[in-house]
Write a protein that binds this DNA or RNA. Structure first.
Lengths: 205, 205
DNA sequence: GTAGCAAAACGAACTAGTTCGTTTGGTAGA
DNA sequence: TCTACCAAACGAACTAGTTCGTTTTGCTAC
């Protein structure tokens, strides 16, 4: 995980490992508890750092939250774009796999969505940029003929996202199911996601 | 709002209007701020009630939250079942309209999903009951031939929910768009929701 | 009508615990 | 010495939940 640059002759000052640890601990904390529920002491403790250091690097709790959100969005967008070349159904499948393997990303987005409008200023430029990138991808697939061109690319993008994350938000699976689904169930869900998107994009209906 | 029963000869004691006001204020507060972000004092003040009364009716903050959640789920399920007779695409459209008109319900579900697993015990029986009811509806439509029977009803139910609520959770529209979409945009989205579900359920593909 | 009563409600103060953000004193390495 | 760091403590504000004396309200009986 650590691409150590100290092996190279470059004098790149080791990028503040304490700050990194704080950010990493904050990531876990905020994803689990949100902004209001997160505890600064817990973040510092889990980072094996002192609060003095935490506030040396970040002014507010909200600033730390914003940093985590931005980092998550960048990583999430990068993971998304990794599969942007695929067909849209397989892209959705890959996104589903990512959501299953790393639920923190979608949790952070949900937290920001629910708590955000009050305190935090989300990195709007970043978001819009990635969104535009996504739209270009959809439009390209439409031009190539594998996606029905009658869809509004913006709508289609949102629909695919909704399909991919539907089990995270659907009340019965989200609230009632304490036991999480096993591997077979997850594979079946993935297949349904892919199939659903296949039907969406199929040209000529 | 007050169906005054005191006019009838029935001795039905007026059902605690203060408790009702507290519950209503709590509904607004929790939907806006969640469990951790909600403030008891604010609830009491907005209910024009005293904290003494609040704690006379509800033991904890969490108990009040649970009461709000249960009430919301009941009302939401009732609204859902109101349109259960429709075709699945139109059902999705009606659900979309409901989500646009009353975003509080989906917000509460999201709050419960994010904050819930720690403190709150969601009304699992209730949720499972409504879920089963939904599944029966889907199965009936499949038997009637208007919905492709090869879908797992459980999956299809979740997919429709994800499609309906996709704009609430999609990062770009949820976080970046401060300005909310106008009536035209909402109508276009609704049309896309209906069309998406149409394509999902179309038998023979 | 009014006296009496009990439940419901008010409101203001209070407790006890929590939490953010700051400060202080001290250690270790460059 | 300077910088990064830690552990601990601290202050101030906030917050859930409690207590208590007072007031209002609905009801019953006289």
């Amino acid at each position: 995980m650590n691409t150590d640059e100290s092996t190279s002759g470059l004098p790149s000052k080791e990028p503040e490992p304490t700050r990194q640890r704080i950010l990493e601990a904050a990531r876990v904390e905020f994803a689990a508890h949100g902004l209001a529920g997160a505890r600064i002491d817990r973040i510092a403790r889990n980072a094996s750092a002192s609060k003095e250091r935490l506030y040396a690097y970040y002014r507010h709790k909200a600033e730390l939250f914003s940093a985590v959100l931005e980092l998550n969005l960048i990583e999430f967008a990068s993971a998304v774009q990794q599969n942007a070349g695929e067909s849209l159904p397989e892209f959705a499948g890959a996104l589903y796999d990512h959501a299953v393997a790393h639920p923190e990303y979608l949790r952070m987005i949900d937290w920001a969505n629910l708590e955000g409008q009050e305190v935090i200023n989300p990195p709007v430029n970043l978001i819009n940029e990635f969104h535009a990138e996504r739209l270009r991808g959809v439009i390209a697939l439409q031009a190539a003929g594998s996606v029905d061109p009658s869809w509004d690319p913006d709508h289609l993008n949102a629909l695919v996202f909704g399909i991919v994350s539907c089990w995270i938000h659907e009340p019965a699976s989200a609230l009632a199911a304490g036991r999480k689904p096993d591997a077979d169930a997850l594979a079946a869900r993935r297949a349904s996601v892919v199939r659903a998107v296949e039907r969406l994009v199929a040209p000529g209906a």
